[in-house]
Amino acid sequence: MASPFVAVVGATGGMGQLVVMELIKRGVAVKALVRPNTDASRTQKLREAGVIITPVNLSDVTSLTRELTGATCVVSTLQGLREVIHSLQGKLLQASVAAKVQRFIPSDFSLDFTKTKPGSNRNLDLRREFHAQLRNSGIAWTSILNGGFMDLMAGDTPMINHKSHKVPYIGKLTQLLDFTTMADTAAYTAAVAADPNPAPNFLRIASDIVSVQDIANAQTKVQGVQYKPSWMGPIGFMEFMIRVMRLFGGENDVFPAWQGMQYMANMMSGAGKLDPIDNSRYPELTWTKVEDFFRDCKAKEGK
């Protein structure tokens, strides 16, 4: 590819596809690096959008370097445990440096792990550890932190019980929580990737900042039935339960039950709270409020 492009790795996943489509909307040429033997059905939508699909061994730095030469930015949306976040993403970082890519966006998309206590969240620890590689690489990099994905509140989730009309929480009812939809996160990521101007190492965004009471109020308005917060205990009790559950395994699972509990503890304790918020960096973007998100979910369920 002779002209400049943005490379997206993990483009067949949910977040990756959204980022690619947002880049296309901006008129940016995109190359999607996919694993060899990826089923054609998973890349069909990307091909139809004009994306260059390039199968490549993600553990082969030489091949990656060749495919990344000419890229202005590399966006990683890889998801997994140490082998993925450290090893594969680390090789992607090495290749980006060798190819003289201008900017690297790692697959963070999370709470503010720069503020959470090491050991309190396995997946956040992996991201924090990877940043040692980033800092030593010499490449310009930008990490996008979006709090919790609002999409995880769709349907019956640990955060919303539609049968009992309750919103479980731990800690204080007044604690503010950061939520961003995957679509809003992807739009912001594409804006950063396409931006020719320098960007800080960390950008923090939130579609909406709400308390558990706000979530209950929004569900009440949308569903027409009163939802109430339901206290489950102090933060320390949740942390104790996490330690007990880890004794029974799940360390090799990307998202075991106790991993979700770790995110809940980090959010509801305020440890992973985003501050400052950088939404205004790209004023052309719009942001999804929690109540609007719930209305959209209900409308989709009715189809």
Rank of each mutant, 00 (worst) to 15 (best):
A98H: 08
A265E: 00
S87V: 14
A199L: 14
P118M: 07
A190E: 03
M1T: 12
G10Y: 01
P4Y: 07
V28A: 04
V30P: 00
H162I: 12
A29W: 03
T286Q: 14
Y263E: 12
F293K: 01
K172Y: 02
L46R: 06
F104L: 04
L173G: 07
K303N: 15
P276F: 03
M232K: 08
D178A: 04
A98K: 11
D208F: 00
L285M: 11
R204S: 04
R295F: 04
L134K: 06
K289L: 08
L81V: 14
T12Q: 06
V56A: 04
F202I: 12
F294R: 00
Q259E: 15
V51N: 01
S63H: 03
N161F: 08
I242W: 03
I277D: 02
D112S: 08
A265N: 05
V225I: 13
R128G: 11
W287D: 04
I139P: 09
L176V: 14
P256C: 08
H162D: 13
D214K: 04
Q17C: 12
D112P: 07
G50P: 08
R26T: 07
R26G: 13
F293Q: 01
A199F: 00
S211Q: 03
S87W: 06
V167Y: 02
K273L: 13
L247T: 13
K31Y: 04
L23F: 02
T69F: 06
G14P: 05
P234K: 10
L203M: 15
N146S: 12
T189F: 03
S280T: 15
R128P: 04
I144C: 06
K91G: 01
P55N: 04
I53D: 00
A183P: 02
R122D: 11
P4H: 05
M241G: 08
F130N: 04
E67C: 02
S107L: 04
K25G: 03
A190R: 01
G155E: 10
T116G: 00
D278C: 03
L111M: 14
S269R: 11
R103K: 10
M232C: 09
S269H: 10
K221E: 10
T174Q: 11
G236F: 06
A299G: 06
S143W: 05
I24H: 10
